[in-house]
Nucleic acid binder design. Structure first.
Lengths: 147, 147
DNA sequence: GTCGGTGCAAACACTTTGCATACCT
DNA sequence: AGGTATGCAAAGTGTTTGCACCGAC
């Protein structure tokens, strides 16, 4: 049997996990880095990336592919997400996981299904406001141009 | 009103769309590039990226965030996907879109919900076989080591 | 002639890796 | 000592951008 490397819970890893538990907003690696640096000013970005990877492998945190960059969260319970199309923010969706979905697919697919992700997309409250503001400004400009 | 640039259907764009229509496997930008180059050997990767972006904006194709790189498809109809955890392959899932999901979230969220993505994950047939083979080999090695 | 599109190369953003040092047991 | 983690810098990947040229209207 391969003896896999022993896992050590270092201060860096503890703080990273802690940040992800507290932070509700599914931060990117860079955001985690900035947060962790408050407690550990000498931590390097490489350490953050390495540990986000290792902790994800270990199942202690979760990782999501974003459209730009990856996002992480400390909640390992299965749940769904809402993503803002304008600002990229990722939040938990108020909907319990629907277990039956996987069974529906198993019946008709040759894949061995092990899980699923459901992500809603739309506009967060702040970006809805921003869009309205932009729209108004656009209209004003048009009026001015037509004078 | 801003006069937005007029859209031209160039040969490059036609071929890109054509490739995506034919290709069932949700190729990456690089894969699209290699396919398109068969018809247009002088096309550049930058053109492929630019046009994948523009065609996505125009709603003629769709884009998905992968764990490594983005994937594209020519089918603009809403549908779900299955992703292989080992090889990253992305395929259509045999499950009709469930319209009620979005309404469930709208009731309890301040987001303006405009759509959703459902992605199943698991192992494709080929990678199931590969895992079994790897497992057997691992066992053999172990036996040999214990002699 | 104008405007949009292309190819090429350089720049970019995000992530991973190599290496010497430091830590823990 | 032996194995694991860290910080730093360099390298890697995938994607975007600047720019000169081209081609359709």
């Amino acid at each position: 049997m391969e003896a896999q490397p022993r896992f050590r819970m270092t201060p860096q890893r503890q703080v990273i996990i802690e940040c992800l538990k507290i932070h509700r907003g599914h931060p990117t690696a860079d955001e985690v880095f900035r947060l962790v640096r408050r407690d550990l000013p000498r931590i390097s970005l490489a350490t953050v990336y390495r540990n986000l990877e290792i902790l994800t492998e270990a199942g202690l945190i979760r990782r999501y592919a974003g459209y730009g960059q990856r996002r992480y969260e400390g909640n390992p319970e299965p749940h769904y997400h809402v993503r803002c199309l304008d600002c990229g923010r990722l939040e938990d969706a108020p909907l319990k996981p629907v277990a039956s979905l996987e069974n529906d697919v198993r019946k008709h697919s040759r894949y061995l299904i092990t899980g699923h992700h459901l992500e809603f997309e739309g506009l967060c409250p702040a970006c809805q406001v921003a869009r309205h503001a932009a729209f108004k400004q656009e209209n004003n400009k048009e009026v001015r141009e037509n004078v």
